[in-house]
């Protein structure tokens, strides 16, 4: 009985996180782009939720929430094209963040920086694949730098929430 109670608690909490991630995606879509000439520059607000789950629950739950967010956001605001870009970015960044977290030599900030850069890298790779051109690769130089900056910000936010919500309080 106790075990079941615990499971329901976890499910509810993860659902809340997914809802927060979806809402953060929406908030991010409301922010006007800084440079219209360079697409793909994003803060990556939903990653706050994903990074938090990665630290508190692990890769499996983070992947599930990330995927639920992706599907919902695609159905609400996106199309197949945006889905492919987001999926590639989310998959690569999640895997890299999990590996770096496991290596245990960086804090949530470093993990999130790696996540931000690899998210952009995933999107560039899928753009190379879809457009059949390597030329777009030079975008990566700019996107890597903005990815680092937004990664630091997201890492700080994530760190804050990870500290405020310890394991025994969930």
């Amino acid at each position: 009985m106790k075990n079941r109670h615990k499971k329901i608690r976890k499910l509810t909490f993860l659902s809340l996180c997914a809802a927060a991630a979806i809402l953060l995606s929406y908030v991010e879509a409301l922010i006007p782009p800084i440079f219209t000439a360079i697409p793909g520059i994003k803060i990556g607000l939903p990653n706050i939720a994903i990074i938090f789950i990665l630290y508190r629950f692990g890769l499996r739950d983070a992947a599930v929430v990330s995927f639920v967010r992706l599907i919902t956001v695609t159905l609400l605001f996106g199309n197949t094209l945006t889905f492919m870009y987001s999926f590639a970015g989310a998959l690569l960044s999640l895997l890299l963040m999990a590996i770096i977290k496991k290596a245990n030599f960086l804090s949530a900030i470093g993990v999130s920086v790696a996540g931000g850069v690899s998210h952009n890298l995933g999107q560039i790779l899928i753009a190379m694949l879809l457009l059949d051109t390597a030329e777009i690769g030079y975008y990566m130089i700019i996107l890597a730098i903005t990815g680092i900056i937004s990664g630091i910000f997201i890492g700080l936010c994530g760190n804050f929430i990870i500290k405020r919500l310890p394991e025994n309080k969930i």
Binding site: L106, G110, I145, I148
Partner: peptide
């Protein structure tokens, strides 16, 4: 955690240098 923060800074700096070097070459 202080040690990790130091690693973070090193990690970010290495990334930045690598990216700028690539950019400069390009």
């Amino acid at each position: 955690s202080k040690k990790k923060l130091k690693n973070d800074v090193i990690f970010i700096l290495v990334l930045l240098v690598a990216v700028s070097a690539l950019g400069a070459i390009y």
